[in-house]
Every structure is written in structure tokens, then in C-alpha cells.
């Protein structure tokens, strides 16, 4: 098996960039939503949770179509962004949105589980010591959930890295712009003599998935102080 071709490197680089930016962009929203679901009771909470799961349940192509309808040049959000000269449909930025939307439920679920795992009595102790809501979040909740948050980021990145259906429906397959690694594999599958390229990229995908999976398991393994106390 030979080395990756320039086009394959380009697809790999784009996938890595899209995956990373998608996770970074989704993280603040995921933290806020996870905190809300973990700590607050409010009307419409069950509906919000159901909506959160939609990208996991819907066929990705449908999610991509919904994104196109929203962010397309004539979509409501597309028109709004267009007023500021921003176009995302058929651009790599659109691939980031598709990846972020598809990875978002995994990110929120992991972070919420991490927040749920924080001993609320520690937050109460911090409150009696004069800490307001932001300080409690920044100094108690966040550091004690850090491993879960990082594990969630790794999983969401892996999901974003492998995103295909929503991306191809929303931003199509434009070399150098929206042709991410899975789309490049799909393209090679439909190309005569493309099989060696498919094998190379499949191997790269496998490596990325393995690294993500192992690092998520390693990171989520628990804080050293917890491990020792549990022992």
C-alpha cells in the first residue's frame, strides 16, 4: 500500500479541521445545555431533550436537507448570514455546521453525565463559602467534570470526523472545499481503479477512530483521586 496522494491528504486535512472546529464551536453551547439539563427543572425540558436526540435518530441525509433548508441561500438563517456576507452552503464552513450538529448530542450527553456525577454537596459547600453561581461552576463543577467533558469532545470529534450523510446533502462534494475523508472514500468507490485509495483512507479512518476511542476510554477512566478513593 502506497502513501496518501495529495488529494487524499487534502481530504484528511479537511476532515481533521472540520472535526476540530466543529467540536470547539459546539462546546460552549453543549456546556450550557448540559448544565441546564443537569441542574434545572423547567417547562419544556422533556421536549428539549427529545429535540437534542433528533440528529442521532433522523437519517443524516434528512438532517443535511434540514440544514440546507435553514442555511441555504434562500433559507431563513442563510438569508440572515447572507446580509453579513457570510455563505455556508457548499462551503467548508457548512461542513463544520453539519459536523457540529451531528456531534452535538454526543457532546451534550457526555457532559451532562459528567455534571450529574459531580457531588452537589460540594457545590453547596462552595456556596456557603461565598461562591456565586459562576464561581461554583468554574471552580467546582467544571474541574470535577473535566474528564467527562474531554471524553465527550473526543467522541464528538470522532463523530464529526466520520460525518458523511448530512455533509454531502448540505455542502455537496467539492474537492478542496467540502470533500472530507468519508466523501473522498465514497468518491473513490465510484471511480475505476479507486480501490487502493479507498483502502488507504479506510485505514486512516480506522486509525483515527481507534485513537479517539482509546483516548476517550483513557480520559473517562476517572480522576486519580477518585480512583484511589474507590479502591
Amino acid at each position: 500500500m502506497t502513501a496518501l496522494t495529495p488529494d487524499e491528504w487534502q481530504a484528511l486535512g479537511l476532515s481533521l479541521r472540520v472535526g476540530l472546529i466543529a467540536v470547539v464551536a459546539a462546546l460552549p453551547f453543549a456546556l450550557a445545555l448540559a448544565w441546564l439539563l443537569s441542574r434545572k427543572r423547567f417547562p419544556g425540558r422533556a421536549l428539549l431533550e427529545s429535540l437534542l436526540f433528533l440528529p442521532l435518530i433522523l437519517p443524516p441525509v434528512v438532517t443535511g436537507y434540514a440544514l440546507l433548508a435553514l442555511f441555504g441561500v434562500h433559507g431563513p438563517l442563510g438569508e440572515l448570514l447572507g446580509a453579513f456576507g457570510i455563505v455556508v452552503a457548499f462551503r467548508w464552513t457548512g461542513a463544520v455546521i453539519a459536523a457540529a450538529v451531528m456531534g452535538f448530542p454526543l457532546l451534550v450527553l457526555s457532559i451532562r453525565a459528567a455534571f450529574d456525577g459531580v457531588d452537589r454537596r460540594l457545590e453547596a459547600a462552595a456556596e456557603t463559602l461565598g461562591a456565586g453561581a459562576w464561581r461554583r461552576f468554574a471552580t467546582i463543577t467544571l474541574p470535577l467534570s473535566l474528564r467527562g467533558i474531554v471524553a465527550g469532545c473526543v467522541l464528538a470529534f470522532a463523530r464529526a470526523f466520520g460525518e458523511f450523510g448530512a455533509t454531502i446533502s448540505f455542502v455537496s462534494n467539492i474537492p478542496g472545499e467540502t470533500r472530507t475523508l468519508p466523501i473522498a472514500i465514497y468518491e473513490l468507490l465510484n471511480t475505476p481503479a479507486g480501490m487502493p485509495g479507498v483502502q488507504r483512507l479506510a485505514l486512516v479512518s480506522l486509525l483515527v477512530a481507534l485513537v479517539a476511542s482509546v483516548s476517550a476510554a483513557f480520559v473517562a477512566g476517572g480522576a486519580p483521586w477518585r480512583r484511589r478513593e474507590d479502591a
Partner: peptide
């Protein structure tokens, strides 16, 4: 409230 509360289980911040 400025109340110093020493809980039965200490509740020290583990991190």
C-alpha cells in the same frame, strides 16, 4: 450569609 459550615463529612474539594 457569611456562615462557616463544617459538614459532618468535611466536604473538602477533592481536586
Amino acid at each position: 450569609r457569611r456562615i462557616g459550615y463544617v459538614f459532618q463529612d468535611g466536604r473538602l474539594f477533592p481536586h
